[in-house]
Design a protein around this nucleic acid. Sequence first.
DNA 1: CAGTGGTTTCAGCACATACTGAAATTCCTG
DNA 2: CAGGAATTTCAGTATGTGCTGAAACCACTG
Lengths: 159, 159
Amino acid sequence: MSESGSPGWEDTLAWVERVATIFSADGIPPIAGRTLGWLMICDPPEQSAGQISTAIGASRASLTTNLRMLTTMELVSRRTRAGERTVYYRVDDDAWYKVVQRQIAGVASYVEVARDGMDLVGPDTPRAARVRESHRVLSWLVRVFADAPPPPSETEDRS
Amino acid sequence: MSESGSPGWEDTLAWVERVATIFSADGIPPIAGRTLGWLMICDPPEQSAGQISTAIGASRASLTTNLRMLTTMELVSRRTRAGERTVYYRVDDDAWYKVVQRQIAGVASYVEVARDGMDLVGPDTPRAARVRESHRVLSWLVRVFADAPPPPSETEDRS
DNA sequence: CAGTGGTTTCAGCACATACTGAAATTCCTG
DNA sequence: CAGGAATTTCAGTATGTGCTGAAACCACTG
């Protein structure tokens, strides 16, 4: 399935492109984004670098680079099968949770910077008001997600 | 104050650079990031393009470009004073809140993409499992953020 | 130990982005 | 209406990044 002649093939590619666009906003290169998008809906769910390459129309060299990036980020994982030398790639189950986590962590990394900033100009001076304000907002963000119940796992739940 | 000979000048610049680094992770150009960082701790809190330019060591031309970007993003605002032609820039009070909001919105923009993806392959098919999972996590993110109480405002006034 | 299907490395190209100096522009002041 | 201090525009440069083809590199099989 999911071959280049299948019904809805164009729609599938268009969807993959939308996913890639979203990731590109966070500095993820196009082919890595497309790879991730493709691995989200391809059938079968595990595919080789060559399969992905032809599916999204990128060179194998690029696939090597971008698959390494994605595995390093722990968003996709490598799988091997007994008696086969082909490596199959698969999107990680909690890939999106990791994406969210890192997004939050990225913004929240400012918290310590803000703290140092307050020390720099004197924590209680009016001049530190702006830094203090930012520190307050970011701390709030961190707390909200720390206190939030983790997403329910694997049970059916949609809408 | 905050002149280039002041005590702790180097520390101040280093701090500004750290802020810029954080923003650069989200695709904000260096000078825009430095400008934002500088406007967070400078004294007085409102400064002209020329002042910022000399403070962070960038050309005025760059300041024009980057200040336009920052004002378009509504992170800094322009201020004029009666009888003066100089435009003073100031970091917005809720700048960081906006940053957080947009970060969340950026990730959450995937929610509709996921919904369309499920429609594409059939919402209840096993093939849609990965897309469904991602949709679940992102929906959770959006809900957490929507339900969270907004950050308490300090209601502190500037000098 | 040669052959083969797969992956990786490397050099180079194409493209985009950030920054600057200098000229053009604006708009207040005298 | 000239003078001048500010900002803006513009052309050009430098830097960096992503992608590809071709060659090198495994690691199994026969």
